[in-house]
Design a protein around this nucleic acid. Structure first.
Lengths: 148, 148
DNA sequence: CAGTATCCCCCCTGATACTG
DNA sequence: CAGTATCAGGGGGGATACTG
C-alpha cells in the first residue's frame, strides 16, 4: 500500500515531515545551507545517486524550498538555491546537529564555524514561551491534533 | 542496493538522520512528547500499521530513545517512555512545528498549549552564538564535514 | 489489549548507459 | 558537466490473521 500522506494533516509537524521527512531531503538542504549550489556539488558531497538527486531536487523546487536559476559563473547549467522557505529550515538542521552532537558521539565532533571563529558550543537551541521562559518538554500538554 | 548508512558519519546531522530520519520516527516521538505511552495509543493516534509500529519501537528502544517499563496502571503490558536522549528531540520537533506552521498552512493552524494557556506564537526558535547573538543561515560557513 | 507472523506490493535507491 | 532513461533489488509499509 502507498505510504500514508500527511500532506493535509492538521498537524504542522505532520505536514512538515510530509515535505522534508524523507531520508535525503534534509541532507540536501544542509549542503545548500553550507554553500552547495550545483548538481555535481550535491552529488559529490552526498554520494547520492544522480537520478535520486534529480528527483529530490525536482520535488524540492515544486515545494518551493529550492529555486532554479542560471549559473552565476555563466556556464550553461542550473544552480539550485534555497528560497526563504528553504532557509527557514535552518533551525531544524541546527537542532538535529545539536541533538546528534550531544547524544551520538562518544567524543567531541564537528565544530560549528561562523565568521571564521569556532562557535562550539553555539548556545543551544531552546524552546521558549512568549514571555521568554524556557519550556521543558514535560510542560507541553498539546501542540496539535494527532496526524490522523 | 541498500540505503547508504550514515551511522558513523562524521557529521552530526548525518548521524541524527540515520537514527530518526525515517518517516515515522519523529511522529512517534511527537506522540510520546504529548503524553502517549501505550502501544495502542500510538497506533490509534498515528494510524500506523501494528507491525510497523512494533518494529519502530524496537529500533527506538535499541537506540536508547525510548525505554520500556511496566504499565503504571498495573495492567500486564508495557509502556514506552522517552529517555532523556529521546526528550532531547523536543527542539527538533518544535522547530519542525514552527517551520510547518509558517510555510505550509494557508491560514492559521494548530496552537501550542502550555499549562492550559495557549502559547501561540511561542517565541520562535532561534540559532544563537555563544555571545547570544542570533545567527542567520548566511553566516554559517561550515558545520561539519559532508556526509561522505 | 498487546503484540507477533506472514504475505505482498510499491517505490525508493543505486548502477549503468546514454544524451547534449 | 548536467542531467535523463532504464533496469533491478530490497525493504519499508500496510492488511490480515493469529496468539496470549
Amino acid at each position: 500500500m502507498k505510504r500514508k500522506s500527511l500532506e493535509n494533516s492538521q498537524c504542522a509537524i505532520g505536514r512538515s515531515l510530509d515535505r522534508i521527512g524523507d531520508w535525503w531531503t534534509l541532507l540536501i538542504v544542509r549542503e545548500a545551507l553550507f554553500g552547495a549550489r550545483r548538481f555535481s556539488e550535491f552529488q559529490r558531497d552526498l554520494g547520492i545517486a544522480k537520478n535520486t538527486l534529480a528527483t529530490r531536487l525536482k520535488t524540492l523546487v515544486a515545494d518551493g524550498i529550492f529555486q532554479v536559476q542560471p549559473a552565476s559563473d555563466g556556464s550553461a547549467f542550473n544552480e539550485y538555491v534555497l528560497t526563504e522557505k528553504g532557509r527557514g529550515l535552518f533551525p531544524v538542521v541546527i537542532a538535529l546537529h545539536q541533538w546528534g552532537e550531544t547524544h551520538l558521539f562518544a567524543s567531541s565532533c564537528c565544530p560549528v564555524v561562523v565568521d571564521g571563529k569556532e562557535e562550539k558550543p553555539v548556545q543551544r537551541i531552546q524552546v521558549r514561551a512568549h514571555d521568554g521562559r524556557v519550556i521543558q518538554p514535560e510542560e507541553l500538554k498539546f501542540i496539535s491534533p494527532s496526524a490522523g
